[in-house]
Design a protein around this nucleic acid. Structure first.
Lengths: 221, 221
DNA sequence: CTTCGACGACCAACATTCGCATAAAATATA
DNA sequence: TATATTTTATGCGAATGTTGGTCGTCGAAG
């Protein structure tokens, strides 16, 4: 999962990024509204953390423009504690959730998890497909109840695929969501990891759609 | 485990802190409502001890604001013995428990233990995993019934991990809960202590999840 | 039906990061 | 001061991620 943090306070921005990276996400950052808007417009994020008080273009405008342009990316708003009106306006503008500053990093993480989960239309922290169960909170995967050991990239890949099961995912989309901006476009890492996942879960799990990408099938185990 | 004590009576504050530290917690203190509110809002405590009669902002308001902002941190209220109404109001405001002043330190400690325990979803003061039993009340650990000698940091680390068994805990989270504010971010102390615990309990106890953190497994002993 | 080309799978070597043990230094405790 | 505990420093080794190459396979065009 790939996140964008738009926050002008360098220190806070760094803290947020660290926490998110700790939690296993890939994170891009922006320090002003314009940059943030551009990135959110260009890159396919799975969630955005957006501060409201920003230089260049304030957070609310950024959010409004995104929504006007049809971006549905989940957005978590950061508001100063005393700016109630901002909170309301943020929700009107299409924010998915908000947290008042100052906040507990853990709370932000919990809310981000919830956003990603909801975006995938799921109710809990667990996604299952056949005998395979992925627990995003515990960071654990089991097959037939047996825990399966995955490396962090393997986990991310599987996680993304399971969040979008049934849909064909292009290699480009995977690269965009699993890596940050500068990454060698023509590399075959994704294929390698798909191969490794198949070795661990059986080749039936991930279906190859030639020329388009990969798909996780509900029926298969 | 990391605690916050909000109490304007310096003497009492000090006593509480000492007792808590003796019991193996890491403790931050605040002498007025504002400071207390800020800290509780910012730092991830495992429990808070909150006096109601405070300068700047009274305890009840502090608590109400925390709860309104979605903080679920367990809070133990201190009330004067004759202020029944306060007690009721405290519970309404979201306190988890209360103690009337003057009190026995023992009672406070017991209630704090209970709060931490409940927050972790446990029923007793003993947490066990395989043959290892940790008694939070006695501050002792046994393996196969044999007492194991741990240093205070070793105990704290093990305790935190056991309170969250099954979940992957990042090194960052551990540092945040085992040390107070200013602590060198890139230090390898945690790794050293994990190593020591493994030496004492066997390497199967603490599983490392590369790139993410550590996890205590229910299954393993 | 055959052939060709493109795409993906697989493999093995390489580079890198990460965690661990160890020991020495610093700090707290008795 | 002596002792126990905590922290820092460093090098090693294993786990992980990446690259490049080869082979197999699918599908379309002849």
């Amino acid at each position: 999962m790939r996140m964008l943090v738009v926050e002008d306070d360098r220190d806070l921005n760094r803290q947020l990024c660290e926490a998110l990276e700790d939690a296993g996400y890939v994170v891009d950052k922006a320090y002003d509204g314009e940059e943030g808007h551009f990135l959110g417009d260009t890159e396919p994020y799975d969630a955005v953390i957006l501060d409201l008080g920003l230089p260049q273009m304030d957070g609310l405008s950024v959010l409004e423009r995104w929504r006007r342009d049809g971006h549905a990316t989940p957005v978590l708003i950061l508001t100063a504690r005393d700016r109630w009106s901002d909170k309301v306006a943020g929700i009107d503008a299409g924010a998915d959730d908000y947290v008042a500053k100052p906040f507990h990093m853990e709370e932000v993480l919990a809310r981000v998890r919830a956003l990603v989960r909801r975006a995938a239309g799921l109710a809990s922290n667990e996604i299952s497909i056949g005998e395979i169960v992925l627990d995003t909170k515990a960071g654990k995967v089991t097959k037939n109840g047996m825990s399966v050991k995955l490396t962090s990239h393997e986990f991310r890949l599987l996680s993304y695929l399971m969040h979008h099961k049934g849909r064909v995912i292009s290699r480009t989309e995977l690269v965009e969501h699993l890596y940050d901006q500068d990454f060698d476009r023509d590399s075959n890492t994704i294929e390698v990891f798909v191969g490794r996942l198949r070795k661990k879960f059986g080749s039936a799990l991930i279906e190859t759609v030639r020329g388009l990408g990969y798909r996780l099938q509900e029926e298969n185990a």
